[in-house]
Amino acid sequence: MTSSAVTPPVLELRNLVVEFVNRHGTLRALDGISLSIAPGEVLGVVGESGAGKSLTGAAVIGLLEPPGRIASGEVLLAGQRIDQLPVEELRHIRGKRIGTIFQDPLTSLDPLYRVGEQLIETIRTHLPVSEQQARERAIALLAEVGIPAPEKRIDGYPHEFSGGMRQRVVIALALAAEPELIIADEPTTALDVSVQAQIIAVLKKLCRERGTAVMLITHDMGVIAETADRVAVMYAGRVIEIGPVRDVVKSPRHPYAKGLMGSIPALDERPERLLQIEGSMPRLTAIPQGCAFHPRCPHVMPRCHEARPVLEPIGAGQVACFLHEVRS
């Protein structure tokens, strides 16, 4: 946790719990998530699919799909609580103060409207500008995200753009009202490998220029290593390790993070072998007591079965594991 700095973090989650209530009972999908993102910082959120990464993003912008709901905890945007805001006020925050990028650019845009129309409507929803000003701004944005001949392309329909180009449009839409924070949910997963790097580069550059913070949700450790300032590792709806990217990627402390990082082959150094974690992440219905990772953990101890480790500061980061609690 950052010390009592003058500027509060752009985003802070305190003990966020998200639950789904269905007829089989209550499922706890996010179990006490705490993390923060400083202004201009890129926080990578990693984990296997189903770990709750995307759910965390959806919870922040208040777009959990029913029956999902925030059961407890707090979401703070620049020090101000937003998880209990009325629907209409939260809407003003979405798009204006928090931009969002979804996984699939092919389906994110409305196929029936021109790209320009969608940009202009987003700009005019959040900023008091005229149609003409909004259009100029839209063209400038398209130019910034690297779309050639933007004054012409602005009148194209989404289907006339390639996947990579569409994701650039989506980035332009996310940046349209100069938000403080961007939530990028798997922004490159659906794209060709060849354009993934370009998209990440565009996103990184624009956010750095504007000082926009980014919550980068991905399972691609390569992207994290290259882009993020800090990393949060999630497992079964919990954050199990969070810290500066160098520490977490190079010397992860949590056994699960170790396994996860072991799964990226680095080019410059030859690892002895790729670590692999036995088993798979538990279903939400069957999260074991104590540490959720204990059935797969190579270092499991008796108390891991009973008590649940919480995030404890260690070095520049935090880790939720009894192995490290003992030492610190």
């Binding site: 269905n22 499922l27 959806a58 999902g68 279903r283 939400l284 069957a286």
Partner: peptide, 11 residues
């Protein structure tokens, strides 16, 4: 993003 619905009775 979508939740996996657990099978009833998880048989």
């Amino acid at each position: 993003m979508s939740m996996q619905t657990p099978p009833a009775g998880s048989s």
